[in-house]
Amino acid sequence: MRVFVAGATGVLGRRLVERLADGGHDVTGLTRDATGDATVESRGATAVRGDVTDEAVAAAVGDADCVVHAATAVPTGKASASDWERDAEVRREGARHLASAAAECGARYVGQSVTWVARPDGGGRFDEDSPRNPTRATQGSADAERLAREHHPNPVILRGGWFYGPESAHTRQFGEQLLAGRLPALGTGFLGRESATLSYCHTVDAARAFAAAVEGDATGTYHVVDDRPAPFGDFVRAFAAELDAPTPRRLPGWILRPVLGTDAVGMLTTDAVTGNDRFREAFDWEPLYPTHEAGLEQVVERWRADGVVVPTDGGWQWNDGGE
C-alpha cells in the first residue's frame, strides 16, 4: 500500500512511519527541512517537502492509497491564544487540503483528533456518539473533524487520549520536573475536588492504532485510549515512583493556574473518561500498555537505557545530554 503521512517527523508520526515501512508499505513522509528528511528516511520512508497549511500540499499526496493527517503544533508549557490558533491552523487546514486530496485520488483518509473535543462541561464518561464540546484548546480538532467529513466521503477520525511516551516533549518536561521536585500533583483545592480522571494512551499504542486504521476497512470516529482511566494525580505519583523521584506535593489548581495556564489546569481538573471498545472491535486492536503504570515503566526503562536519566549518589537525575 502507498501511504502518505503528514506529521511524519512528530512523536506519533515517526513511530507510525517506521511501523508502516517495516510492514512492507511504500511510505512517503511530509517534511519541512533537511533534518526532517533524515528523520523520515532513517525510518525506511521517502521524504517530500511541503506544508499542510498550503493547498499545494495536495500535489505531494500523489497516487497514495491512504493519506494520514497526524500533523499538529501542540504548544508546550503555558500556552497563549496565538499558540492554540497555530495548532488549530495546522489541524484545520491540513484536514481541508489532505482530505480533499485523498478524495480526489480515491484514497483512504485517517485524521488525528483528541478525546477532549467531546468532553462534557461537568466531566463524566462520554463516547464517540457524544456531542462535540470544544474549548479554545480543542477547537482546531473540532474544525478538523468537520472539514474531514466535508471533504472526504468516508474519513477515519482517531481521537487520542492523554498521549505520553519516552520521546514526548510533555512527558520529558514532567520527568525532569519530577526529578527536581518541582512538579506537583493537583490535589484538593478550594472546590474540594481531586485532579481529573483521564483516559491515557502510550505513543507506541497510538502508532499501532493508526497503523491498524491505515490497514483496516472500517470508517468513522474512534477513541484510542488504554483500558483503565485514572486520576491525573495517580499518573504523576506513579511516574515519580518509577523515577525514584520525590513524592509530588498536592496543590490546588487555582494556585497552579498562573504557572501552567488556564487551559492546562482546566484539562487536568475536569474528568475526561472514555473507552476503546469501539476501536477494539472495528480494528482488532488492543493496547500493548493497558494501564498508565505499565506504560510509565517502559518510559523510564527507555530513558535509563538511553542515558536520559543517570544514577547519582542519591538516586537519579535528569541528563540534558541524553538521547
Rank of each mutant, 00 (worst) to 15 (best):
R92W: 09
V48E: 11
A88E: 08
S130G: 09
V156K: 00
A148C: 01
G140D: 09
A71R: 04
G122S: 06
N154H: 02
S100D: 11
A95F: 12
T76S: 12
D51C: 05
D121F: 15
G77A: 01
V110M: 04
G123T: 01
V74H: 11
C105A: 11
D127M: 11
H151P: 03
V68W: 05
D129E: 08
R49D: 08
L158M: 00
G50M: 02
A99R: 03
R159N: 06
P155W: 00
F126L: 05
R159A: 02
G124R: 06
V57D: 05
D54P: 05
W84K: 01
R108E: 02
R159Y: 00
G77H: 04
A88R: 10
S80C: 05
T72N: 12
T115R: 07
N133P: 07
Q139A: 14
K78F: 03
R136V: 14
G77K: 03
E85V: 10
V117H: 06
P120Q: 15
E89I: 13
V110Y: 03
A142E: 03
G106I: 04
A107R: 00
D127Y: 10
A71F: 00
A103G: 15
D121T: 14
A59K: 14
R132S: 14
R108Y: 05
A47R: 02
A99M: 02
A102I: 13
H152K: 05
D65W: 06
E93F: 12
A60E: 06
A47S: 01
A107D: 07
T138R: 02
E85I: 12
R86L: 14
A64H: 04
G122K: 02
A107M: 11
V74W: 13
T53D: 06
R49Y: 00
V110T: 09
P120I: 10
A107G: 08
E55N: 09
A60I: 04
V68G: 06
G62T: 05
S113V: 02
N133H: 03
E150S: 03
Q139T: 13
E145R: 11
E89L: 15
S113H: 07
A118V: 07
Y109F: 13
D121K: 15
E104C: 08
K78P: 04
A73S: 13
D51H: 03
C105E: 06
G62I: 09
G160P: 08
Y109M: 03
E89M: 13
S100L: 07
E128S: 01
R119A: 08
Y109H: 01
W116Q: 13
D87Y: 07
G123M: 02
P134F: 08
G122E: 04
A103T: 10
H97C: 00
E93M: 11
A118T: 10
A142S: 09
T115A: 09
